[in-house]
């Protein structure tokens, strides 16, 4: 199996889908000749031509709006929005139309749009380049929200998202873009919507997605040295949420810490925590804890590591659930 970075794995997934299905389209800002500012679309225009892989004007609302129309015309659009923070100019099209078109047409139209969104912080980016808007999209009925944590998952999930008949907001963790691992480039054939136990543990369960999965694995290794056994659950999809796996994993340990980069208030950890209250209350040995970004706008690059949940902050929360 080849050793690939997440960028290369995503590129392979796009190549696979463009080759497998000739109505797949890739478009966005700088995705053509440049191959994307992160090179995720590198070489695709050369290989599949300007008809199917093309640069758009600098207009996010336009990108999403035409994706809706292209989907209605029977195409399978895979637009890219260059950075998390620039999905906001497209929010109206995403929330008002992309999410609702199936319903507005009483099922006449599929919306097989996969919106790729380089997301989250941790790379010292300038303003608006490090946001974690997952809860906005998860809160919007009609959108699915998928977010891989490593190269292999990136490949599998992107292929599955593109095959899905519903709109998927595909949030790629920029801070994990360059981490390499062996990747099997055979589509797993699994649909989206399944969480994954990435590490088994018996004392408490860390629940995370995207970039915080790796952080939680670091925490679990650190805790192991102190004789504490932590499991790590990668949700992979926030919508649809794999509640069965979530409830079982947490029921096994009776303790959960949910971690995300997004601010705390109304972040997706609140949803996870509520599901645990509703579905696993009897097996909880401690109140569910959250470790999140602070309730502030994402700060400037120089201090972002004081914003993103650190190993220490997560360990403190682990201590709280163990000591309860």
């Amino acid at each position: 199996m080849p050793e690939l970075s997440m960028v290369q794995a995503l590129n392979a997934a796009l190549r696979h889908c463009l080759a497998a299905h000739d109505r797949t389209l890739v478009f966005g800002q700088d995705v053509g000749r440049l191959g994307g500012v992160f090179r995720v679309t590198d070489g695709l225009q050369h290989e599949f031509g300007e008809r199917r892989v093309f640069d758009t004007p600098l207009a996010e609302s336009g990108i999403v709006g035409v994706a809706v129309g292209l989907a209605m015309a029977g195409w399978r659009p895979v637009p890219e929005i260059q950075f998390d923070g620039f999905s906001f100019p497209a929010l109206d099209q995403m929330l008002t139309n992309l999410a609702k078109y199936r319903g507005r047409s009483r099922g006449a139209y599929d919306m097989p749009v996969t919106l790729r969104l380089p997301s989250y912080g941790g790379i010292g980016g300038p303003e608006h380049h490090s946001e974690s808007p997952e809860s906005i999209y998860a809160h919007t009925a009609g959108l699915k929200v998928v977010t891989p944590s490593c190269a292999q998952e990136a490949f599998n999930l992107l292929v599955a998202a593109i095959r899905d008949p519903d709109p998927v907001i595909f949030m790629e963790p920029k801070s994990r873009y360059w981490a390499k691992e062996e990747v099997a480039l055979e589509p797993a054939g699994l649909p989206i919507g399944r969480a994954c136990v990435v590490r088994a543990g018996s004392d408490a369960t860390l629940v995370a997605w995207g970039p915080m999965v790796h952080r939680c694995l670091q925490v679990a290794s650190a805790a192991e040295e102190d004789g504490v056994s932590l499991g790590v659950l990668d949700l992979r999809c926030l919508v649809p949420l794999d509640e069965a796996t979530l409830l079982t994993s947490v029921a096994e340990t009776g303790r959960a810490v949910v971690v995300h980069e997004a601010p705390r208030t109304a972040g997706f950890a609140a949803e996870v925590s509520a599901r645990l209250m509703e579905g696993a209350f009897g097996s909880l040995k401690a109140p569910v804890q959250r470790v999140t970004g602070w309730d502030v706008p994402y700060p400037s690059g120089a201090v972002e590591q004081q914003y993103i949940p650190s190993v220490d902050r997560i360990l403190l929360a682990v201590q709280r659930v163990l000591d309860y």
């Binding site: 600098l58 923070g85 620039f86 906001f88 100019p89 010292g124 300038p126 303003e127 608006h128 380049h129 706008p297 700060p299 400037s300 690059g301 120089a302 201090v303 972002e304």
Partner: peptide
């Protein structure tokens, strides 16, 4: 200092210079 990641939008006196914080969200 904005480009050192010290403060988004810049650390100059925007009121005195009548020079708004620099916009990175294109067109906004």
């Amino acid at each position: 200092l904005a480009f050192r990641g010290a403060w988004n939008g810049g650390l100059y006196d925007c009121r005195r210079n009548r020079f708004a914080p620099m916009a990175s969200s294109v067109g906004s």
